[in-house]
Simulated scan of single mutants.
Amino acid sequence: MKNEEVDSGKRWCCVCAYDGTNYAGWQKQPTNDAVQNKIEDALHNIFSTPIRTIGAGRTDAGVHANGQVFHFDHQWTHGVDNMLQAIRAHLPSDICPLSIEPVSPSFHAISSAKGKRYLYRAVRGWAMPQEQGFCISLKNKSYDLEAMREASQFLVGTHDFSAFAVSHRKEEKEDPVKEIWSMTVNQKEREFQFEVEGSGFLYKMVRSMVGGLLEVGRGRIEVDTIREILQSRKRTEVVVSAPAKGLCLEQVYY
């Protein structure tokens, strides 16, 4: 995201964070209850004309972001910091632009992206009220950390992830072959953290992978079952998508 070849600041790249609890995901909806709706409304108010934004990718309803990226085109001559503050002032408190910069007209939030990093959080026992929107409670169940770590490594590499995806729209046929660069499962105090990096992700893929690993952790399926499910390329009732509120888009790589 360099400033070279910028056409008087016509194209802008913004990194933003949001609490997805009250939104129908990133992609704008006719009901006006998506994050993108709120951002485009804010830009409309600032520039007094409709502004189309392009996001780096969708997040599901209830999913959060610390590093969602989007771009838009419009002239602005009042300084980068002034634009950032103006956008913040027109957004609700649960959506916050972190940075904005002019970029080359060739930059594209989707097609220029090389990969993404997600973090899923699950609390052993019960999540406190201030945590409830951002992680799931594992309640009184016991989980085997080492078993989840071992199973997670079957998901690293280039695979057909059809078994860990959910059909979204029939007219959208996405290549199910994705490359997962790394997947780690760590425990910090009473919290399990599932961190995954890869070139791309299918609909509900991260939540499905975490759901499968949690089944391993509970001892409901064997470690090797994750590999068998992956190789089957078929969705099975054994894999249940983990709840949206535990997932956060941490970073988009360019």
Rank of each mutant, 00 (worst) to 15 (best):
Arg88Ile: 13
Ser111Asp: 13
Gln68Arg: 11
Ile136Thr: 05
Gln130Thr: 15
Ser99Phe: 13
Trp126Phe: 10
Trp76Gly: 03
Met148Arg: 04
Glu146Asn: 07
Pro50Lys: 00
Lys116Pro: 12
His90Ser: 14
Lys141Ser: 08
Lys141Thr: 14
His44Ser: 09
Gly133Met: 13
Val103Gly: 02
Phe70Cys: 04
Leu119Asn: 12
His108Thr: 04
Gln36Gly: 07
Asp41Lys: 00
Ala34Gln: 03
Gly133Asn: 15
Ile46Arg: 05
Ser104Cys: 09
Ala42Gln: 12
Val69His: 02
Gln68Leu: 11
Leu138Ile: 14
Glu150Tyr: 14
Ala34Cys: 02
Glu101Ala: 13
Tyr143Phe: 15
Glu150His: 13
Ala56Leu: 02
Asn45Tyr: 08
Ser152Trp: 00
Leu138Gly: 06
Ile54Cys: 09
Gly62Met: 15
Ala109Thr: 08
Asp41Tyr: 06
His74Tyr: 08
Trp76Tyr: 07
Ser137Ala: 15
Gln153Gly: 12
Cys135Ser: 10
Lys139Met: 13
Pro105Cys: 09
Ala61Cys: 09
Thr49Glu: 02
Arg88Asn: 14
Pro50Met: 00
Asp73His: 14
Gly133Lys: 15
Ala86Met: 15
Ser142Arg: 06
Glu131Val: 12
Asp144His: 09
Phe107Lys: 03
His78Gly: 10
Ser99Leu: 10
Ala65Ile: 06
Thr59Gln: 01
Leu91Asn: 08
Gln130Met: 13
Thr53His: 03
